[in-house]
Write a protein that binds this DNA or RNA. Structure first.
Length: 584
RNA sequence: GUCCUGGUAGCUCAGCUGGAUAGAGCAGCCCCCUCCUAAGGGGCAGGUCGGGGGUUCGAAUCCCUCCCAGGACGCCA
C-alpha cells in the first residue's frame, strides 16, 4: 500500500514537472509514512512541503496540484490536504480488512520478506571464553544475537549463527592449572590457591571428575608444583607472575600429553555446560568455531599482511600499521618472544570468515570491545576486503537488580549470577523477553523481582495473556457449539466497523514493516514494543466488544480477526523464542 | 586527555529517513466483572525533551559548544 502511494506520488510529481509547475531538476525523496492520528488518514506524505521552495509556491497549492495529478485508484477512498501542506491518504475499508485474509493465508510466513534474499550473513555472538559458566552478562548477548539472527532470517537473509570458542591462550592455561590444583587438593596436597586462579565451585566439580577419570596418576607433590614460583599478591608479589609460573610448572611436571588431558577435561566440561545452558535458553548455533583450529592460519595471515607491506619490526616485535586504515595506533601481531597476539588470531579469523563467502559478518560484542573495532576494520581492509563486510553491535551491560539492590558479577571470583540461575528464577520466557526489550545501546536494568512477578507489571505476561485470551475465546466457541466458517468470516470482513477493530487491522498491516525495520536496523526492541501495542489493542477490543455474538455473520468476521491477531502474536513471540501459551 | 554510548513525566523507557497536539508501562487518583480468563479495560493528573547557540516552512531528532553519567583506550586474552 505504501509502495503504491509512493508510485502514485512519483507519477504526480512527474506530471507537475511536465506542466512546469515544478522545476525539472528537483529530486525530492518521496516519503510516505503511517499517520499517528487516525483523523489524518492512514498514510501521509510531506512531498508538497519539500517542493514548496524550489517551485516558489505555497505548500498547500503544490499539494492541491499533486492531488489533481494523482492517478485514479479504488484502493484509496480519500485524499486530503491538511495542516501546513501534508497530503493525507485514506485507505478504502476493503483494503484495510483484507489484511486478515493475508495473515490467515500466510500463517507463520506472515511478516517474512525477501529484502535479504540471496545474501549470506553470519551472526557471531556470545563467544564467551570457556573458562566458566555463562553469567547474566552473556545472557543479553545471547538473547540479542539469537533474536537478530531470527529477524534477519525472517527478512530473507541466509543466516549462519556462530560461536567462536577461545580454546587457546593464557586464560585457558590458567583454567587448566586451576583445575589441576583443585585436583591436587582433593588428593591431600596442602597449598594456598593462587589469587588469580579460577575459584568457582564448578572448578571443584571438574577436578572431582578428573579424579574419578585419572585416579592419582596426575598427582605431584605441592612442593614441586610451587618450586621456584614467585610470591602471590597477598604475600606481596605479583599475581600474574605467580600464576604464569604455576602454569609453566604444570606443563613441565605433567608433560604435554597429560597436561593436554587436564586441559581438555576442563575445556569440554565447561563447553558442554555452556552448550546446555544456551540450548535451554533456546539459543542455538549452527557452528562452534574453534580458535585452535585456526592456529596454522595465523602465521599465514601475518605473512599475507607482510607481503602486502602492512607490517614492520620495532623493539623485537612485529607491528601491523593499522593507522594506515584509520586506527589510532599501530598494533603488535607477533610479540618479541615470538608468540602471536590474540589480535593476530582475530585477523586470521576475519580472513577465514570472509573466505567462507559471507556477504556480511555481524559481531555481537559487549560494549567493552569498542576500542577493538577500529583495528578489526583495519585488518579487514589490509586483507583486501571492504570494511563494510563487518558490522559490530556493541551491547551495553546488563545490571541485575533484586530487592532494589544491584548485584555484582565477576567470573574470576566465582560470585556471579549464572544464566542458569536466572532461568531457574524467572523462567526462559521472561528472561528472553527482558533481554531484548531495550535497545542494545542502552544499559539494561534487569529487575529480577519484576520478571518473576505474575502481575500486570510484567510485559511478558501481558503479551502472552493476549494470546491465551484469544485461545480461550476459541475454546468457548466450541463449548457453546457456535458455528465458525472461516470463508464466510472473510467474506464478511466489511462488518468490522468498530474503532477498536480498525486499530487492530492497522496494527496487523504494520507487522511486516516492523519486522523489516527491526531486522535491518538490528533492533529487536522494535518487535517487543510492537507486540505490547498489539496486545494492548487486543485487550481493549476484548473489553469493548464481545466476539461470540449471536449475529452469525458478525461473529464469523470477528473470529477471523481474532485468529489473525493470534497468528501475529505467535509469529512475533516465535522470533524472540518466547512461548505463546494457550492457557494462563 | 582521546574516543564510544546515554541524558525525554516522580521511576523505567519508546519516539521509524527532521513533520501535525512528544507517547507507553510502573507509581498516584477515579471508574468498570449478572457479560468470551480483571495476569484485563477506560479516564484524570504528570514534560522549559540536560543547558545555550545555529540550520530549516518545521528540531527530542541535524550542526556547534558546554555540563552530567557509564564505558573503552596493554607486546592481556
Amino acid at each position: 500500500m505504501k509502495a503504491l502511494i509512493e508510485r502514485h506520488l512519483a507519477a504526480a510529481l512527474a506530471a507537475l514537472k511536465v506542466s512546469g509547475l515544478v522545476p525539472e531538476d528537483t529530486q525530492p525523496s518521496i516519503a510516505v509514512t503511517r499517520t499517528r492520528d487516525p483523523s489524518h488518514g492512514d498514510f501521509a506524505s510531506n512531498l508538497a512541503m519539500m517542493l514548496a521552495k524550489p517551485a516558489k509556491k505555497s505548500p498547500r497549492d503544490i499539494a492541491a496540484a499533486l492531488i489533481d495529478a494523482l492517478p485514479e485508484n479504488n484502493d484509496i477512498s480519500k485524499v486530503e490536504i491538511a495542516g501546513p501542506g501534508f497530503i493525507n491518504f485514506f485507505v478504502a475499508d476493503s483494503v484495510a480488512s483484507s489484511v486478515v485474509a493475508n495473515v490467515l493465508e500466510q500463517g507463520e510466513q506472515y511478516g517474512c520478506s525477501k529484502v535479504g534474499e540471496g545474501q549470506r550473513w553470519q551472526v557471531e555472538f556470545v563467544s564467551a571464553n570457556p573458562t566458566g559458566p555463562l553469567h547474566v552478562g552473556h545472557g543479553r548477548g545471547a538473547a540479542l544475537g539469537a533474536t537478530m539472527a531470527n529477524l534477519l532470517n525472517a527478512a530473507g537473509f541466509d543466516v549462519q549463527r556462530e560461536y567462536y570458542v577461545n580454546d587457546a591462550g593464557r586464560q585457558m592455561d590458567i583454567l587448566a592449572t586451576s583445575v589441576w590444583l583443585r585436583y591436587l587438593s582433593h588428593h591431600g596436597e596442602q597449598f594456598s590457591f593462587p589469587s588469580n586462579g579460577y575459584k568457582g565451585d564448578y572448578i571443584n566439580d571438574i577436578a572431582q571428575s578428573l579424579s574419578s577419570d585419572a585416579g592419582t596418576s596426575l598427582v605431584h607433590p605441592a612442593a614441586s608444583v610451587f618450586a621456584a614460583v614467585p610470591d602471590d599478591e597477598p604475600a606481596g608479589g605479583d599475581k600474574e607472575a605467580h600464576i604464569d609460573a604455576l602454569v609453566a610448572n604444570a606443563q613441565r611436571l605433567l608433560g604435554e600429553t597429560e597436561y593436554l588431558k587436564v586441559f581438555d577435561v576442563g575445556l569440554n566440561a565447561i563447553l558442554d555446560d555452556i552448550k546446555q545452558d544456551l540450548s535451554e535458553f533456546d539459543v542455538n548455533f549452527d557452528s562452534w568455531f574453534s580458535e585452535r583450529s585456526l592456529q596454522n592460519n595465523v602465521m599465514q595471515c601475518v605473512d599475507k599482511l607482510d607481503k602486502a607491506g602492512h607490517l614492520y619490526k620495532k623493539g623485537g616485535a612485529t607491528w601491523f600499521r593499522s593507522t594506515d586504515f584509520g586506527d589510532e595506533k599501530d598494533r603488535v601481531v607477533v610479540r618479541d618472544n615470538g608468540q602471536s597476539t590474540y589480535f593476530a588470531s582475530d585477523i586470521a579469523y576475519i580472513n577465514n570468515k570472509i573466505e567462507r563467502g559471507f556477504d556480511k559478518v555481524l559481531y555481537v560484542f559487549g560494549a567493552d570491545h569498542h576500542g577493538y573495532t577500529a583495528r578489526m576494520y583495519a585488518a579487514c581492509e589490509a586483507l583486501g576486503h571492504s570494511r563494510e563486510k563487518l558490522t559490530f553491535l556493541l551491547i551495553q551491560f546488563a545490571n541485575l537488580y533484586k530487592g532494589g539492590e544491584k548485584l555484582q558479577m565477576s567470573t574470576r571470583s566465582g560470585s556471579f549470577v549464572t544464566i542458569r540461575e536466572l532461568r531457574d528464577e524467572v523462567g526462559k520466557d521472561a528472561a528472553r523477553y527482558f533481554y531484548v526489550m531495550r535497545k542494545y545501546q542502552q544499559h539494561l536494568d534487569f529487575d529480577l523481582d519484576l520478571a518473576v512477578s505474575q502481575s500486570n507489571d510484567n510485559p511478558v505476561f501481558y503479551v502472552q495473556y493476549a494470546h491465551a485470551r484469544i485461545c480461550s475465546v476459541l475454546r468457548k466457541r466450541e463449548q457453546l457449539n457456535m458455528s465458525f466458517d472461516q470463508a464466510a468470516g472473510l467474506a464478511a470482513l466489511a462488518r468490522l466497523k468498530e474503532p477498536e477493530e480498525a486499530d487492530l487491522l492497522t496494527q496487523l498491516a504494520t507487522y511486516p514493516e516492523v519486522i523489516q525495520r527491526a531486522a535491518l536496523g538490528h533492533e529487536p526492541h522494535q518487535l517487543t514494543g510492537y507486540l505490547r501495542d498489539l496486545a494492548n489493542g487486543l485487550h481493549s477490543y476484548y473489553n469493548a466488544h464481545k466476539t461470540l455474538v449471536d449475529d452469525d455473520e458478525l461473529r464469523q468476521a470477528r473470529l477471523c480477526l481474532m485468529l489473525a491477531v493470534k497468528q501475529v502474536l505467535l509469529n512475533g513471540l516465535l522470533l524472540i523464542d518466547v512461548s505463546a501459551p494457550e492457557v494462563m
